[in-house]
């Protein structure tokens, strides 16, 4: 499955980057969101996949039954998901305000610092 996911992730990177290269600021943020998913999946896949056994210690045992999914990348991704949400919200509102103030959604016309 790593092989399949490798291609999925590559495609998501391509899609996200393509959207970020657009001049429309709205597309930029969609690209950012896709890129976020892709990066999370990248960390998840790079550490190796394990089907169905989560890193939780069963009752009456003192350590998880091997093989179990690697907990460390999961912890990293969990924070990344939530942080990504915060950043995305901020970017959305920032763009919303920028479009309101600047009256354009064309990034090329937003170059000047004065409005």
């Amino acid at each position: 499955m790593e092989t399949v996911l490798a291609f999925v992730i590559g495609a998501l990177y391509a899609a996200g980057l393509y959207m970020m290269l657009r001049r429309s600021i709205v597309k930029l943020i969609i690209g950012l969101a896709i890129l976020g998913h892709a990066a999370n999946l990248l960390i998840f896949t790079a550490s190796g996949l394990t089907r169905a056994r989560s890193p939780i210690i069963p009752e009456a045992l003192s350590r998880p039954l091997a093989p179990f999914a690697d907990p460390l990348p999961q912890a990293l991704i969990l924070t990344a998901i939530v942080i990504g949400f915060g950043v995305q919200a901020f970017a959305l509102v920032l763009i919303h305000r920028a479009v309101q103030t600047g009256g354009t959604d064309d990034l090329d016309k937003m170059k000047a610092t004065d409005t």
């Binding site: 790593e2 490798a6 992730i9 391509a14 980057l17």
Partner: peptide
């Protein structure tokens, strides 16, 4: 842009294919 994006995506795919065989 599509060309650039697809090339970058291909790079990522290649990296994953290499790295999934490495245990950190």
């Amino acid at each position: 842009d599509a060309l650039v994006a697809v090339t970058a995506g291909a790079l990522i795919t290649t990296i994953i294919l290499f790295s999934s065989n490495v245990q950190f």
